[in-house]
């Protein structure tokens, strides 16, 4: 309760400072609207469904691309951890591409796939895949070899050992890779949506860019807030429960 209260006080203070800066007249209101104007915009766009529609489009792209990234990344990481040859080839590639900000894929994506959903998915996959691959690889390498030995003495064969011992044992690493992959995917998708007008769907990034074109900064800030809130909610709803479960099992993460 005390923690909730301190959060609330902090954010109220933040909004107050924002409002105060507006009142000083540092920037004209067209460029820096006050919190009430942004609130008005959010209220109106929630009522007419703009935000809802755009979030739906964006989240579909995000979850589809991210899902594909995970489905490809985990087996890829298992392969790089298991086979020296794949480690020296695909592993190096993954390491290199992970350092490449995935927004760099946007120009190629447009040329290859045009102004379609495929470009969006491509960018999101490129953003998440390598983080997941590398953390899976890393997690598997950090599994104490004695786990696999113990499993073998209990009669576990290769496949069973991989699915029931090595993967669960690497879960903390894989999860942190998934979180990083999520953050990369989210950033790169926003960049892609701002750069590329896609005819098949109007995402949050495009609503934001549209706001800039219309010189409607209340819209820009409003959409930014929505993006932040979605990120927070996903973290709390998707990752936090899994993290808590892992901490409870492993006995880690206690202050």
């Amino acid at each position: 309760m005390k923690r909730v209260l301190s959060s609330i006080i902090f954010f109220v203070a933040l909004v107050a400072i924002w409002h105060f800066v507006v009142l000083t007249g540092w920037k004209p209101r067209v460029l820096l609207p006050d919190p009430f104007a942004v609130g008005e915009y959010l209220k109106a766009s929630l009522m007419d469904g703009t935000i809802f529609q755009a979030s739906k489009v964006t989240l579909w792209r995000l979850f589809t691309g991210y899902g594909i990234g995970i489905i490809l990344g985990i087996p890829l990481g298992m392969l790089t951890a298991k086979f020296r040859f794949i480690e020296d080839t695909v592993g190096v590639l993954a390491l290199g591409l992970q350092t490449l900000p995935s927004v760099c894929w946007v120009p190629l994506g447009i040329m290859w796939f045009g102004q379609t959903e495929a470009t969006m998915l491509f960018v999101v996959i490129m953003g998440s895949l390598w983080s997941v691959t590398i953390s899976t690889d890393n997690g598997i390498r950090n599994v104490p070899p004695i786990f696999a030995r113990a499993a073998r003495t209990m009669g576990a064969k290769q496949f069973y050992t991989w699915t029931r011992v090595i993967l669960p044992a690497s879960a903390p690493f894989i999860l942190s890779g998934m979180k990083q992959g999520w953050a990369f995917a989210w950033r790169s998708l926003m960049a892609a949506e701002i750069f590329v007008p896609i005819l098949t769907g109007f995402g949050l990034g495009q609503v934001l860019q549209y706001g800039r074109d219309l010189n409607a900064m209340d819209q820009v800030i409003g959409v930014m807030l929505v993006i932040v809130i979605i990120g927070l909610v996903v973290d709390k709803v998707l990752f936090s429960p899994i993290e808590r479960l892992l901490h409870r099992r492993w006995g880690t993460g206690k202050a």
Binding site: P144, I146, F147, R149, A150, R152, T153, M154, G155, V165, P168, A169, A171, L246, R249, W250, G251
Partner: peptide, 19 residues
Amino acid sequence: GPGRERMVMFQEPALFPWL
């Protein structure tokens, strides 16, 4: 090869923390 009729207990417990 390893088999269930010969079980090994190691110096470390080697228990699986996720279970």
